[in-house]
Design a binder for these strands. Structure first.
Lengths: 191, 191
DNA sequence: TTTTGAAACTAACAAGTGTTAGTTATCTTG
DNA sequence: CAAGATAACTAACACTTGTTAGTTTCAAAA
């Protein structure tokens, strides 16, 4: 596995790792280059700026989240099942891209305009897809009557704990994490 | 409100605001100073380094979270109530220190040693206080049998969404946020 | 074998970094 | 009012930042 990586791929992977570990602003081009094994100016043969590199990481992830959601959401009818299946899809994307996801969630604030604006729009759209399921589920009495914005925020935050969970843990599988979290959110902690 | 602020207080407040908005690493001492209305070197009359400033923000918040937890936890016997009351306490601290809390959650990674080590220890202790309630509640059958680490992570993440919630929202009160989130976590979304 | 294009290199720039030294102004206290 | 402390100031240092210019290396195409 991980054979025949091009330099560009290596740059991207290394950037994801470093940006997650230490934050976009704290990682310099020289440090990134050193980790890749080249000189800093050589990075510009592959990406035209530091911002361009962040842009690619963030927008690639956005695309993956959208694709996974859209593929998952059509498979179920009941809203409880719909929610569970998109939660699983979301977690699936995170687990398959642990470092890039973290950058996506935490470092996008460093995007420059106009990328920043475009990105915010995408994030909002994605959030609305979740809220839509919740709102419709509430209308159909599949869900309790609650503030859907609050719920959506709580869900996102809980999902985004997946990274820490997956990294720090006693061999939880992606399936187990997805099941436990969606169970918690749907049924609650109370016995 | 906010009368007779000393320069040191103003520096701290401004730092909290800027560190939250743009990240610790992205905020320079000159920018901070400008916002305060003094020159950069004058900052060093109040804090001996940039790290020292971050240290004070983070450790002050840690202390507040501990104090609120300890005060809350003794007031209840049943573990469901215990959990609810510490959740409320935690959210209370966030709401009373919106910007500083965000720094506490997101920027502590930039602390230098030995502060970084001490801080990590504190965070872990705090997490364990929550997990302790969950574990004991599971033993007493107040809670379902679930992975307490996963649950603790999910709870923390959900709680830490409070900032975005409080800021972006349709006039939710602290009481409402605390109630809705603890209801969600205890009883779940399912009707 | 020569040509070409990609991707590496070195050197350097202008701007910005946290911070120190030394000095002056301002406020508090005796 | 004089003395001392506090907190502001200007100037500067050593280093790092993202990035560009110009050059060389090297493998594939002609």
């Amino acid at each position: 596995m991980a054979v025949a990586q091009t330099t560009k791929e290596k740059v991207k992977k290394t950037a994801q790792k470093l940006f997650r570990e230490r934050g976009y602003a704290a990682v310099g081009m020289r440090e990134l280059a050193k980790e890749v094994g080249i000189q800093a100016p050589s990075l510009y043969n592959h990406y035209k700026s530091k911002d361009d590199l962040l842009r690619e990481i963030c927008f690639d992830m956005a695309q993956q989240f959208f694709a996974a959601f859209d593929k998952a959401v059509v498979t179920e009818e009941k809203f409880q099942r719909k929610l569970k299946v998109v939660i699983k899809a979301h977690i699936g994307v995170i687990v398959s891209n642990l470092e890039a996801s973290e950058v996506f969630f935490n470092e996008w604030v460093f995007l420059e305009q106009p990328n920043l604006g475009k990105f915010k729009k995408l994030r909002f759209e994605y959030e609305m897809k979740f809220r839509d399921i919740i709102d419709k589920g509430i209308k159909k009495d599949d869900f309790k009557k609650m503030n859907s914005k609050l719920i959506a925020f709580a869900i996102f935050s809980a999902l985004n704990a997946t990274y820490d969970l997956y990294n720090s843990n006693e061999n939880l599988t992606q399936e187990e994490i997805a099941n436990d979290i969606s169970d918690l959110l749907l049924k609650g902690l109370k016995s």
